Amino acid sequence: MSIPAPRKSALIQGTGIANADPLLTIPEAAAYLNIQPQTLNNWRATGRYTLPAVKVGRLVRIKKSTLDAFIASRTEVAA
């Protein structure tokens, strides 16, 4: 699975400045974690992992910084 190219919505409207913490769709967030979107949905629905999401109307988005923190919290240090 490859990470999708940044969307135009990753730019702050009208400024041309890239958003430092973009909101990713479930498929984009799953691709970033290299998992299937259904796996991410299952984790969120069952509470297996705490992945806070942002609701935009009926749409669910996850901040990239949330995914980065999740990866950091799950990283094991070799002894």
Rank of each mutant, 00 (worst) to 15 (best):
A78M: 09
L33R: 05
E28C: 10
V54T: 15
A18L: 11
P52V: 11
G57S: 08
K64I: 07
Y32K: 09
V54C: 08
L11V: 04
I17W: 03
R58E: 10
L40F: 04
E76K: 06
S73I: 02
A30M: 01
Y49Q: 11
T50F: 13
A18C: 02
A29Q: 01
P22F: 03
T75A: 14
Q36I: 04
A18E: 11
T25R: 06
A45H: 09
F70C: 13
I3Q: 09
L51V: 15
R7K: 13
L23T: 05
L23G: 06
V77S: 11
S65M: 06
Q13N: 09
A69C: 05
T25M: 04
I17H: 06
I17V: 13
V77R: 12
T50E: 15
V56L: 15
V60L: 09
Q36M: 06
P37R: 00
K63I: 02
A53W: 00
P27I: 01
E28L: 12
K55W: 05
S9N: 09
I3T: 13
L67A: 10
A5M: 10
T66V: 15
V60T: 15
R74N: 06
G16I: 06
R61N: 05
P37I: 00
Q38G: 03
T50G: 13
V77I: 13
Y32G: 01
P6K: 06
I17L: 11
T50P: 05
Q36R: 06
G14M: 04
A69F: 10
Q38T: 11
L11Y: 08
T39R: 14
I35A: 03
A30C: 08
Y32R: 13
L67V: 04
G14F: 04
K64R: 13
N41M: 10
L24V: 01
L24H: 00
R61E: 01
A72C: 08
R74A: 11
A45L: 10
V56Q: 12
P4C: 08
L23Y: 01
T46R: 15
N41C: 11
T39M: 15
L59K: 10
L40D: 01
M1P: 04
I35P: 02
A31I: 03
L51A: 10
L51G: 07
T66S: 14
E28D: 14
K8I: 11
R44A: 10
G57E: 11
K63N: 05
N34Y: 04
E28G: 13
P4L: 13
S73W: 04
P27S: 13
S73L: 06
I35F: 03
E76W: 02
A45I: 00
R61M: 02
L11Q: 03
K8T: 12
M1N: 02
N34W: 03
